[in-house]
């Protein structure tokens, strides 16, 4: 893996909100086929990191490269290789699923000739074929989340970034979304944030743990378990992020 060009590379990424440091000197490298879990308590800087990596938030300092293209200097070319599902899926309630995916495809510059195929494939991949003609506003939360993931992968980007994709779903939906993410991990590089640690353990090759904007661990889950001499990722997580009065 190491000899391959990383799909995503962030160097010394920092961001302040007023006087509050939301993220400090984050370094991150993601290679093709890797699934990275971004872990941390609420307010640790996970969403800030993801918003910066996808061009939704300007970094205070540092650089981001997507497939070797600088996101700040050449945002349009870099964003061609990115797919992003924010914490609240950006869905137009009054559109049908297929209409919305067509819009997402054309916004991501999928050529007209390949659009029908791309939409059909994505519908199938996200198990949305049965609801393709329904209005998004009438779908259940689980289906809406799937539509959110579908818009992020419709253009087959090299990097898919998912912010808490399983939050608020029922156990069955969580299982389905997890299977979808595992499948995505085989063909894309994926970063996902989650509060559900067994999920991170099951899905991710690597984890990056943030505490108040600082990276407290970045590496393989097995290394983390060895380093902390704990039995579970949850124990390690509590040990790393719970020290002091974390907010």
């Amino acid at each position: 893996m190491a000899e391959l060009l990383p799909s995503l590379r962030a160097r010394n990424l920092s961001r302040c909100y007023g006087k509050r440091m939301a993220l400090e000197a984050l370094d991150l490298e993601l290679h093709p086929g890797e699934v990275m879990g971004l872990l941390g308590q609420n307010g640790a800087g996970k969403s800030t990191t993801m918003r910066m990596l996808t061009g939704n938030l300007a970094p205070g300092s540092g650089s981001i490269e997507v497939c070797g293209i600088d996101l700040c200097k050449n945002p349009e070319a870099a964003k061609m290789h990115l797919g992003y599902l924010p914490e609240i899926p950006p869905l137009y309630q009054e559109m049908t699923v297929s209409g919305f995916l067509r819009l997402a495809a054309s916004l991501h510059r999928v050529p007209k000739s390949g659009m029908t195929v791309a939409v059909a494939q994505t519908l199938q991949r996200c198990d949305l074929t049965g609801v393709s003609k329904r209005l998004i506003g009438n779908l259940s939360k689980g289906y809406r989340q799937r539509v959110g993931i579908a818009q992020a992968i419709i253009h087959s980007p090299a990097v898919v970034i998912l912010d808490e994709p399983t939050a608020g779903l029922d156990p069955l939906q969580i299982r389905e979304i997890r299977a979808l993410i595992a499948e995505l991990g085989r063909s894309h590089s994926v970063i996902l944030s989650t509060h559900f640690l067994p999920e991170a353990e099951a899905l991710c090759n690597r984890v990056l743990i943030l505490r108040r904007g600082r990276t407290v661990f970045s590496g393989q889950v097995s290394d983390l378990l060895k380093q902390c001499t704990d039995d579970t990722l949850e124990d390690c997580f509590v040990r790393l992020t719970g020290q002091g009065n974390a907010t």
Partner: peptide, 14 residues
Amino acid sequence: RNHTLPLLFSAPVS
């Protein structure tokens, strides 16, 4: 208000 701007901001659109 509906948090749909990230769709446009994340796409390769100026």
